[in-house]
Design a protein around this nucleic acid. Structure first.
Lengths: 176, 176
DNA sequence: ATTCCGACATGATGGATATCATATGGGGTT
DNA sequence: AACCCCATATGATATCCATCATGTCGGAAT
């Protein structure tokens, strides 16, 4: 996810930054797509309201991630963007985005490369999440990423879709 | 995943097709990247051999999917491509791919659009796979996709990472 | 120093699901 | 018609993990 950052940076070069508080909606379903957004800090969830009143989180964008890129090729949004943690967001008019891609092929090609890496990374994460056992998921993650920096096991648990206690138990088992 | 197909088709227009039998390796780790591949039929797994002798499946490419796109921006492959079910594969020299993107901006832009959709779709699948209960995953999938065509519940089970019996049990529960 | 907080750690328990097994029914095939 | 394959379906059992609870430790802030 980080790898894509630099490409978006190039596109968002000079775009103004706005701060949204927790709970704010950056856009809502059915709203016309006029701009694109890059999350600079905090986190923003894309949510789709469900029949039972709850919301389905489609994704959670954090620092360096674009918001609802796919919507840039649509007329209206198909989900809500709700701020989870107070977020700074760069805003760029849709037309500027399209013009940049059209006029600066090196940026377009860079975006393709970044997307290619993102797609592959997501595929491997999907394969890990499809595994049944904590030990398999951990094996796979460690094999691909190596041990995480000190103090980051919790986020590993998050990424591989496992509760922190389950992860620590698995780690303890391996030490003995 | 299907949505990306047409864009690759345009790039692979006229590329020759080769058939690989089950078990064959289309490329191996460390091999230099000389071509790109589009799976026309059958299935091909990207695998990374693990310390314990087994292999970690990074992804499984089926009809219409490109193989290891990210490698097109690298010098060597970082995983093996092993045929799961006899596969027809279109092969295009790496240089032709890059030249196509460079010389035909409309194809490059189309690829960006396709990737944007793929990335979003994968993100929602990841969120579904992170859910604990079968009923939540099914709710989410149905809300986004609607009921599947007759005879395809099994593949829904596959997509949402649940065993077929568990899915049928959940469906039975809902009928009553 | 003391407080506070978050990561790390581990035990007990209940519940959800994978797995194995077995059965049925419909669509093709010979 | 007899056969086979596969999706559908459901029961019994074992396993795994989420959850809750509780405790330790180290670093940051006061």
């Amino acid at each position: 996810m980080i790898s894509i950052m630099s490409e978006w940076q190039a596109i968002f070069d000079g775009a103004p930054v706005t701060t949204f508080d927790t709970g704010a909606a950056i856009f809502r379903r059915e709203d016309p797509v006029r701009s694109m957004y890059l999350v600079r800090s905090g986190s923003v969830a894309l949510e789709r309201p469900l029949a039972d009143g709850t919301a389905l989180a489609l994704s959670v964008a954090r620092s360096g991630m674009a918001l609802a890129e796919a919507s840039l090729f649509a007329d209206t949004y198909h989900c809500d963007a709700v701020v989870r943690e107070t977020a700074e967001v760069s805003i760029l008019p849709k037309a500027v985005f399209h013009a940049t891609l059209r006029d600066r092929p090196e940026i377009a090609l860079g975006l393709i490369e970044a997307y290619a890496h993102t797609v592959q990374a997501q595929r491997t994460r999907i394969e890990i999440l499809r595994m049944r056992k904590v030990s398999s998921r951990l094996d796979a993650w460690l094999d691909l990423n190596g041990p995480p920096p000190e103090g980051h096991w919790k986020s590993v648990a998050e990424v591989i879709g496992v509760s922190p206690p389950a992860l620590y138990r698995e780690l303890a088992k391996r030490r003995s």
